[in-house]
Design a protein around this nucleic acid. Structure first.
Length: 576
RNA sequence: GCCGCGGUAGUAUAGCCCGGCCCAGUAUGCGGGCCUGUCGAGCCCGUGACCCGGGUUCAAAUCCCGGCCGCGGCGCCA
C-alpha cells in the first residue's frame, strides 16, 4: 500500500477516489459499533470510518493512539449534518477498505495532544521525549517557519550575488571573548581544536580571497551559561561583503529582513529602520538593545537625590518612573529585585505608590523621594546609583522587562532598529581595555589619531541590529590593513609574539591585497523566536540543551570510556 | 559562582503558610464495560504518586538542614 495522498489535503473534490494515507492514529472514537479513526500526518488530520461489517473492524477498534498505520479507502462526503467546519478535511471522510498496522505504539509518556496539559508540562520532560514533543503541530510549525525563514534569506542573498560558503567548526582557539569548547587532538597529544565561536576570521579571509559577497548558515559554539535567549550552540546567518561602508551593509540587511518578514510572516517592516547612537541609547534607555515598542525614558537625577542617597565621587543616579496597576505590585517588586544586580556595584531604591500603601525597599527614603519626584498614586519609581554604565544598564535591563510585564509592548509589533557608533573599547573588571565588539572591528578612520591619546573615546564602525529589546545581529566594518590591526592588538595588550602566534595568518593575509570589507551576523534562533512570539529560543530549535547545558534525551554530556580517553591521549580528568 | 521560584500517579494540578480530618483529592491518560454519526465524544467501574538523605515531633506531603534536578535572572556572553 503506497501513499497516494496526504491526510490534510483531502477535500470534496476527492470524493469517490480510492486513496491510501499513511500516518499516526491521532484519535480513536468508538460510538456504538462505529469506529472513527483520525489519522495524522505532517499535513494535517483526516477522519476514517469503520463499521462492524468491515473485516478490519476488530483490528482498528483495538489500535492504540500514535500507532503507525496505512489506510486504504474511498473518500466520501459526510452526511450534511456531520460536517466539521473546524477541520480543513471536515467535509469528507475515508470509508476504510484495508488497514495495515505498520507499528503499534505504547501509551505515550507525554500528553502531546492535550493542549491544556502541555501548556504546563515541564520543559525537561518535553526535552527528554523531544521526538514526541516535536509531533505537536506547534513545534512542526515552529521548525517549518524557521526553515522558510532561512530559505527566504538564502533566496534574497543568492539573488544579490552572494556565495554560500562553509567554514570549519574545528578551528584554532583564540582566547578572546567567550570560553571555547575544546576538542582534543588525537594526532597531536596535548593540543586542542576549539569549536568556532563564529566564522569571523574565515569570512574575512574569504573577502581577502576575493569572494566579495558571502553568506552562511553557521553553527556557533560558546561555553557560557545559557539563558532563555542563549544556547551553547546557536545559529547565525553570517554575511560579509567587500568594498562597502557600514551604510551599505545595514541597507542590504534591512532589505533582507523586509523581504523575509514579508514572505514568511506577511509583515511589512518599517523603511528605513531607525538608527540610534549607542550613547543616546544608554542615555535614554540605559541599554544598548532597548525595546522601542514603548516610550519610557530614563532620567539622570544625580542632583535631585544628592543628600538623600549616598553617592561616591563620580557616581550618577538614574531613574525610571512608570505607571503600574496595583494588582501587579508584587510582580513589579519581584522583577526589580530579580533584575538589578545585588553585587554592591549598583545601589537601588524603589518606591511603588499604591492608593493605600507604599511599597519600598528603603522605608526611610520613600517619603522624601515621593516628595522630590512628586510621585502620584499608581506611579512607581526606581533609582539606581553608581558608575554611569552600571547604574544605567541595571535600570535599562529593568525597563525592557517592565515593558512586557506592564503590557507597554505590543506583541504584534516588530520594532527593528540599528544601534550605531559604539565605542571601540571598553574597560574590563581589571581596568584593562577590551574590544567592545571584537578586535577586528575598524575604528572610524578619522578617529585613528585618538587611539594613542583617548582610546576609550574612539568610535567603532560597528552596528547592532535590535528587535523588541533583543540583539538580533551585530556587525562592523573590519580592519583591512596590517598596521592598524597590529596597533589595535597592541592596545589590547598583546605582545608582538602573541599577535603572531594567534593571528599571524590574518596579519599576513592583510598584506596581500585585503579589500575593505564588513559584514554582520544575524541571530537566527532569536529572530525566528521573536517573530513567532516566544521569549525562549528553545521553542524554535529541534534539539536544544537545558539551562544547565544538558540534553535530557541523550544524556549529554557523558563520561567517555577510559579506552577512548587513552586513545585521544587525554586520560587525566579533573573533577571539580 | 550567586539570587529567586519550583519538584505530589504516565502527565498536569489540589493539599504545604496553620503537622493529625490524607493508607493523599481532581483532570487527563491507561485497563474494563455501555452506546450506530462521533470529532476536546459521553456515561459507569477500576488503576496509579508525596525527588533523595538526615533532623524535629507521639505524629511529617506539610516544619528545619543538606543534596540532586529544573526554570527565570545576576555575573558571564570579544
Amino acid at each position: 500500500m503506497k501513499r497516494t495522498h496526504w491526510c490534510g489535503e483531502l477535500r470534496r473534490e476527492h470524493v469517490g477516489l480510492e486513496v491510501v494515507v499513511n500516518g499516526w492514529v491521532h484519535a480513536l472514537r468508538k460510538v456504538g459499533r462505529i469506529v472513527f479513526l483520525v489519522v495524522r500526518d505532517r499535513s494535517g488530520l483526516v477522519q476514517a470510518v469503520v463499521t462492524p461489517k468491515n473485516p478490519n473492524y476488530s483490528l482498528v477498534s483495538e489500535l492504540s493512539l500514535e500507532s503507525v498505520v496505512a489506510i486504504k479507502g474511498v473518500v466520501r462526503l459526510r452526511p450534511p449534518n456531520q460536517v466539521n467546519p473546524e477541520m480543513p478535511t471536515g467535509e469528507i471522510e475515508i470509508d476504510v477498505k484495508e488497514v495495515q498496522v505498520l507499528n503499534p505504539a505504547k501509551p505515550l509518556p507525554l500528553p502531546i495532544f492535550d493542549k491544556e496539559l502541555m501548556k504546563t508540562t515541564s520543559e525537561t520532560f518535553r526535552l527528554k521525549y523531544r521526538y514526541l514533543d516535536l509531533r505537536r503541530f506547534e513545534m512542526l510549525r515552529n521548525l517549518t517557519v524557521r526553515a522558510k525563514f532561512i530559505t527566504a534569506l538564502r533566496e534574497f542573498f543568492n539573488a544579490n550575488g552572494f556565495i554560500e560558503v562553509e567554514t570549519p567548526y574545528l578551528a584554532r582557539s583564540t582566547p578572546e571573548g567567550a570560553r571555547d569548547f575544546l576538542v582534543p587532538s588525537r594526532l597531536y597529544p596535548g593540543k586542542f581544536y576549539s569549536l568556532t565561536q563564529s566564522p569571523q576570521l574565515f569570512k574575512q579571509l574569504l573577502m581577502i580571497a576575493g569572494f566579495e559577497r558571502y553568506y552562511q548558515v553557521a553553527r556557533c559554539f560558546r561555553d557560557e551559561d545559557p539563558r532563555a535567549d542563549r544556547q551553547p550552540e546557536f545559529t547565525q546567518f553570517d554575511v560579509e561583503m567587500s568594498f562597502v561602508t557600514a551604510e551599505d551593509v545595514m541597507n542590504i540587511v534591512e532589505e533582507a529582513m523586509r523581504y523575509a518578514f514579508k514572505k514568511v510572516f506577511n509583515v511589512d517592516l518599517e523603511n528605513p529602520f531607525p538608527k540610534i547612537k549607542y550613547r543616546e541609547a544608554m542615555d535614554k534607555y540605559g541599554i544598548d538593545k532597548p525595546d522601542l515598542r514603548f516610550e519610557l525614558f530614563l532620567e539622570t537625577v544625580t542632583e535631585h537625590v544628592r543628600g538623600l542617597i549616598p553617592l561616591r565621587e563620580g557616581d550618577v543616579a538614574r531613574a525610571l518612573r512608570f505607571n503600574f496597576s496595583e494588582e501587579l505590585t508584587k510582580n513589579v517588586e519581584g522583577l526589580i529585585k530579580e533584575i538589578i544586580p545585588s553585587d554592591g556595584k549598583v545601589k537601588y531604591v524603589y518606591v511603588l505608590r499604591g492608593s493605600n500603601d507604599v511599597v519600598t525597599n528603603e522605608v526611610g527614603l520613600a517619603g522624601d523621594l515621593i516628595k522630590v519626584f512628586n510621585l502620584g498614586i499608581g506611579e512607581g519609581l526606581v533609582v539606581t546609583s553608581g558608575e554611569y554604565i552600571k547604574a544605567s544598564e541595571a535600570i535599562g535591563n529593568l525597563r525592557n522587562s517592565l515593558g512586557k510585564l506592564l503590557g507597554l509592548a505590543d506583541k504584534n509589533t516588530y520594532k527593528f532598529a540599528w544601534v550605531v557608533d559604539f565605542p571601540l573599547f571598553e574597560l574590563d573588571e581589571e581596568g584593562r581595555l577590551t574590544s567592545m565588539h571584537h578586535p577586528f572591528t575598524s575604528p572610524k578612520l578619522e578617529e585613528i589619531p585618538k587611539l594613542d591619546t583617548n582610546p576609550l573615546e574612539v568610535t567603532a564602525q560597528a552596528y547592532d541590529l535590535i528587535l523588541n529589546g533583543y540583539e538580533v545581529g551585530g556587525g562592523s566594518i573590519r580592519i583591512n590593513k596590517r598596521e592598524l590591526q597590529e596597533k589595535i592588538l597592541a592596545i589590547l595588550g598583546l605582545s608582538k609574539d602573541e599577535m603572531l602566534d594567534r593571528y599571524g595568518f590574518l596579519l599576513e593575509a592583510l598584506e596581500y591585497g585585503a579589500p575593505p570589507h564588513g559584514g554582520i551576523a544575524l541571530g537566527l534562533d532569536r529572530l525566528v523566536a521573536i517573530a513567532l512570539g516566544y521569549d525562549n529560543i528553545r521553542e524554535v530549535i529541534a534539539f536544544p540543551k537545558t539551562k544547565e547545558m544538558t540534553d535530557p534525551m541523550t544524556g549529554a554530556p557523558s563520561k567517555p570510556p577510559e579506552e577512548y580517553l587513552r586513545e585521544i591521549k587525554w586520560i587525566k580528568v579533573l573533577t571539580d
